[in-house]
């Protein structure tokens, strides 16, 4: 990992994209700049993956990530193998090691993997001679999501410095808020407000890491969401899932309570700044009122679109598309 100095396209050639932590801040900035070029001048990148093949291995369901990786590869004129893991030997108990070794024999140019186990992407990257892109390994990492989140924040704000952001929802188990908070902490003057039910607040070890870096943050309950967002450039909403609460009537009751309290309503946006934006990794369920979608504040569909540019940029960098 290069810490400083001039980053070039060559630095990414053949790299695995397993965790955002594997990249220096300069490298992250380079990826974001490259994604901007991809977005602005897509015709420049047509054909860059000609003759290259992607092997998507989604052991868990995915809509946005899987589709946007496929669209990204197609946009670059590459091909995507149609692998149906539902009908594969995995269901017969084949180990991940055997599956990957077999797949490597087919000589794809890149493997994109989503798996339920934490660390699975790192394991696959270790045993695979071809580049591996992590499309989410359990609760652990989802680096392309973090990169597209950073890209979107930079698009809104024009910079990743001095970002005032509220991050709301399930902050305890959600991998997205963790990765995003740590990624933003790399930049100057970041000010984060964490809004969650007490039972789903940011893990103490993550807060300790932010403390160590002297990062400004506050913690609030869901009732304070409206007040908090009035002082922010944007809010990053996340989903609260039923399975995060204990089984049985008490857990059910707590979930119902949170579900009824945790909703960003259009009426709560009256006092936000004119350029305020709402982000969400999607899918959203009840946490954003439907009418908010039609306001200028809603930015989550654009955020999802940015996932294509980030993935195009990564494929181009890792697989060595055209030179700049």
């Amino acid at each position: 990992m290069a810490d400083s100095g001039i980053i070039t396209k060559q630095d990414f050639l053949g790299r695995d994209v397993v965790s955002i932590d594997d990249f220096s801040t300069s490298e992250i900035d380079y990826i974001l700049d490259h994604a901007e070029k991809v977005q602005k001048w897509p015709q420049e990148f047509e054909g860059s993956m000609q003759g290259k093949q992607m092997m998507p291995m989604f052991f868990e369901n995915s809509t946005r990530t899987a589709t946007s990786f496929q669209v990204a590869m197609h946009n670059l004129s590459g091909s995507v193998v149609d692998l149906d893991l539902e009908r594969s030997s995995i269901k017969k108990g084949e180990t991940l090691r055997d599956t990957i070794k077999m797949i490597n024999g087919y000589k794809p140019d890149v493997i994109v993997i989503r798996h339920s186990k934490d660390g699975s992407a790192r394991f696959v990257a270790d045993i695979s001679p071809i580049p591996v892109m992590n499309a989410g390994d359990g609760k652990n990492q989802h680096p392309t999501q973090t990169l597209l989140d950073l890209y979107t924040i930079k698009e809104i704000k024009g910079t990743l410095d001095n970002v005032k952001i509220a991050i709301a929802g399930d902050l305890k188990y959600g991998r997205t808020p963790h990765s995003l908070a740590l990624a933003l902490a790399r930049y100057e003057g970041c000010d984060m407000s964490f809004v969650s039910p007490e039972s789903l607040s940011m893990p103490k070890d993550l807060l300790a890491r932010l403390d160590k870096q002297n990062i400004m943050y506050t913690e609030s309950g869901l009732n304070d969401l409206e007040e908090v967002i009035n002082n922010c450039d944007m809010v990053y909403m996340t989903r609260v899932q039923r399975e995060r609460f204990p089984e049985g009537p008490e857990g059910e009751h707590e979930y119902d309570r949170v579900a009824s309290e945790y909703c960003l309503k259009e009426s709560m946006l009256e006092n936000v700044g004119a350029r305020f934006k709402i982000l969400h990794p999607l899918p959203k369920v009840f946490e954003i009122e439907d009418s908010v979608d039609d306001t200028d504040y809603a930015y989550y569909f654009r955020q999802a679109e940015n996932g294509v540019y980030i993935r195009m940029a990564l494929l181009d960098l890792v697989l060595g598309g055209y030179d700049d």
Binding site: S19, D21, D118, G119, S120, R122, F123, D137, G138, N140, Q141, D205
Partner: peptide, 8 residues
């Protein structure tokens, strides 16, 4: 720290 999941 775990090499795979990076748990500390």
């Amino acid at each position: 720290m775990c090499h795979y999941c990076r748990s500390e």
